[in-house]
Amino acid sequence: MSSESPPPAASGDNQDELILAQKEAIAQDIASNASLVGNLEPVYSLEREFSHDAVFMTKIGNLKGRYAELRRTRPDGNCFFRAVAYRYFELLLHRPDEYERIKALLPRAKAQMIELGMPTFTLEDFYDNFMDHVDRVGQAHMDAQQLFETFNEPGQSDYLVVFLRLLTSMQLQRNAEFYQNFMEGDKTVAEFCATEVEPMYNESDHIHITALTEATGISLRVIYLDRGSQTEASLHDFPDQGESAATTPLVHLLYRPGHYDVIYPVKSTSESGPATSNATVTTTAELSS
């Protein structure tokens, strides 16, 4: 992304520091402008950003019939993981079946991560923290408002993101032979995980989504709002159900090039989180003025 690359001969430190400083400045700018997880907004609030663009406007128009609301996440490279985590925890508030399922699944996943050689000491901590939140939400010791606050506290929010990244890495590495087919150049799956999956702030791609949904069994639908020529935003379900798309996915995300937000189907709005409709109305009023 950085367009000015330093001269290749530079041995080091100063250039690195400059680049890091610039990156930090950009990150702070983003941080001061966008919450980690935002309040609910009506889907049509997207129209503000794309009013100049007929393709997007048509697609947003068609989206409104199926999706009611949107929850933005901070575009910091962690948005995919944070969006999935937030929406999933939100669902756990009133889905005891999912709570039982994930509670049984995660300890096995942890064992597999240790088997792969992830540092036990730190892994245990990320795991314990994640599990603790699953329990608190699943056992109603945490409500939607507290969940919202937790996800907007950077340290805590990122701790949860790390665990999903590690889960994703585990899934990729355990199925390295398969995923090797999707690697660019001669990168190994392990290298890909070390550079593109485990470290924070690295954006997610199709392959991350596939691996995370496989690892967790969380079904996911991504609505792609892009410049493709169709009038409907295209969608993709993970795991791929092919023709028999009988079940509705648990989590719905809206993808715009480079970014994921949570999106709420028309029906499920009643169960979706702490944002007051007042806040939504205010935002909308501001927009249209």
Binding site: P8, Q15, P119, F126, V162, A190, T195, E198
Partner: peptide, 25 residues
């Protein structure tokens, strides 16, 4: 080192920092 793409450095990516690294490692 952060796992940025850094063509100047000869380090291979698998040695880079990630949040599971710690004082022991």
């Amino acid at each position: 080192h952060p796992p940025v793409d850094d063509p100047q450095s000869g380090e291979l990516p698998c040695e880079r920092w990630n949040p599971t690294q710690n004082v022991r490692t």
